[in-house]
Design a protein around this nucleic acid. Structure first.
Length: 500
RNA sequence: GGUCCUUUGGCCGAGUGGCUAGGCAAAGCUCUGCAAAAGCUUCUACAGCGGUUCGAAUCCGCUAGGGACCUCCA
């Protein structure tokens, strides 16, 4: 059974066959670090983290390249105006790299909170100005770009005419017909420099107040919005590579432009498989700056956004995202997040208990149950191979959580299921929950000292209970609960605790 | 205006022709000093209308609602 992925280019699920197995090259569009990451940004990075982890699980050697866009317009609220006053001392002026550093750090912090694996290479746009200029030169030399007032534009019409003959029209990824577009595109600034409305900038001449600028054959300026991904994917993954990922909103024009640029330079469509995650919505609308409905990740984790009734942990969010398919929209609401929070807790507690469960050799007494467990486990791979259906895997895992809890509470004897099946379950749950889904324990603060104190309180409470002194035992339990420590009397007489 | 997508139970969300999705919430029971947790049971939906079919949430058409992209955007 092999992996199938939905390819936006062909609009269907295809067998995944890398160009040069066991190697796989994957490029994912990273963030623009001119502001703080929000919940919407979490989706692609968690989605492609799962893709990355699963490809490695299948034995591929993956080079995962995810860029950081740190070139362009960089302004911080309240500081933008100051910057234009040239007489300011250097430390008072807006230094773009300071912003880049600040938001890059925050972004890395958030990725870490989500337990996303770092990519193999994380190139920056500003670190690849030379490569971008070289690529632009090549596009001009081939006749597909022209200069105007120190800016360079890609000639979309010429590209479309020439490459349509080769079956690669502009718009092939997003399913757009460029001829139809001409009358529907809105009026933009600097249209006069362009020969055609569909043309896009490869290099922009920098006006005097623009603080990020580089020397180029066309004068001082900065690269266009699409060229960096072409230049960096080409450099680190080659002219042709396996997977290109990103959010659906990047399909047009960003990815379309990437295809055009790379195709001119290399005469090849850069990526074989284009994977796009769908958007996170809030009350049915896409989360985005223009809608004024963003929930920043720092607000999400601290609960400080006005739309949040409480804080949600990184694992709750990760679990929430995994419960849906990456190609569908996912609607955010407090109710939905709270459901995920509880569900994740239940899943994790069962997994944590079962992972340490000592299994002794025995045959199973309940063949039907044994078979059901095996079936549920076997389907993990099947579902993941079907375009990364994490939601279905989780549904199966919850069926298994019931089985595990039944064993824990002795509603089902351990011997019902054969030790071989139990061991398989143990192994596979660890692989899928921890290694592939990247879920981790959220328990914090259970250092040795704290644990010792709690064990002491539990022991005092147990003595009180045995003397039927429920006043004392309830006082301990209730006051600990008020402090966020919840005690739980287990079936075997022991008491466990969880810290909120 | 153009292109495309979508509409699943109180909420979130899988699912593309016949078989229980799953989670959360709610109700009952079991367990229990009480509580929490857990287990079992119940709630069995597919926007509306029409068509295709032995059979449709799933395919087709129409109607209505919602959304995305066309502009920086994950």
């Amino acid at each position: 059974m092999s992996l199938k992925v939905y390819n936006s280019l062909s609009r269907q699920k295809e067998d995944f066959n890398p160009i040069n197995p066991p190697y796989v090259g994957m490029y994912v569009c990273g963030p623009t670090v001119s502001g703080e990451s929000h919940l919407g940004h979490a989706r692609p990075f968690i989605t492609f983290d799962i893709v990355y982890r699963y490809l490695m699980h299948l034995g591929y050697k993956v080079r995962y390249v995810r860029n950081i866009t740190d070139a362009g317009h960089f302004e911080e609220e309240g500081r933008a105006a100051e910057d234009k006053i040239s007489s300011k001392a250097i430390l008072e002026k807006l230094e773009p790299m300071e912003l880049v550093q600040k938001y890059t750090n925050l972004y890395h912090w958030a990725m870490n909170q989500f337990n996303n694996l770092p990519p193999s290479i994380e190139p920056t746009a500003t670190g690849h100005i030379v490569e971008q200029i070289e690529m632009i030169k090549k596009i001009i030399a081939d006749g597909y770009a022209y200069e105007a007032n120190g800016s360079v534009y890609f000639n979309v019409e010429k590209y479309n005419t020439d490459f349509s003959k080769l079956g690669k029209p502009y718009g092939m990824l997003s399913g757009r017909n460029i001829e139809e577009q001409l009358d529907t595109t809105r009026e933009l600034e600097n249209q006069d420099e362009k020969r055609n409305r569909n043309d896009f900038a490869l290099w922009k001449s920098a006006p005097p107040e623009h603080i990020m600028r580089w020397q180029s054959p066309w004068g001082e300026g900065f690269p266009g919005w699409h060229i960096e991904c072409s230049a960096m994917s080409n450099k680190y993954l080659g002219q042709e590579f396996d997977i290109h990922g990103g959010g659906m909103d990047l399909q047009f024009p960003h990815h379309e432009c990437e295809i055009a640029q790379s195709t001119v330079c290399n005469h090849k469509t850069p990526a074989h498989y284009w994977l796009h995650n769908n958007m996170i919505t809030i009350e049915g609308r896409k989360m985005g700056k223009s809608y004024n409905n963003v929930v920043k990740l720092t607000e999400l984790f601290s609960g400080s956004s006005p739309v949040l009734t409480q804080a949600y942990s990184p694992m709750t969010v990760r679990f929430f995202i995994l419960q849906s398919h990456y190609r569908g929209t996912l609607d955010f609401s407090n109710e939905a997040l709270q459901a995920s929070e509880k569900a994740f807790k239940r899943l994790w507690e069962a997994h944590e208990w079962f992972a340490k469960y000592p299994i002794t050799d025995h045959a199973g007494t309940d063949a039907a149950l044994d078979e059901k467990v095996q079936q549920l486990v076997a389907e993990f791979d099947e579902f993941m191979n079907d375009d990364f259906s994490t939601a279905k895997v989780l549904a199966n895992i919850f069926d298994l959580v019931s089985v595990i809890n039944s064993i824990k509470d002795k509603h089902i004897p351990e011997t019902a299921i054969s030790s071989n099946t139990l061991r398989l379950l143990q192994t596979q749950l660890k692989i899928f929950i921890e290694d592939l889904f990247g879920l981790v324990s959220e328990r914090q603060g259970d250092g040795n000292q704290l644990d010792g104190v709690l064990q002491l309180l539990i022991s005092i409470r147990k003595d009180a209970k045995s003397k039927r002194d429920f006043m004392t035992s309830d006082k301990i339990r209730n006051e600990l609960a008020a402090l966020g420590v919840q005690l739980k009397d287990e079936k075997d007489g022991a008491t466990s605790y969880t810290i909120a």
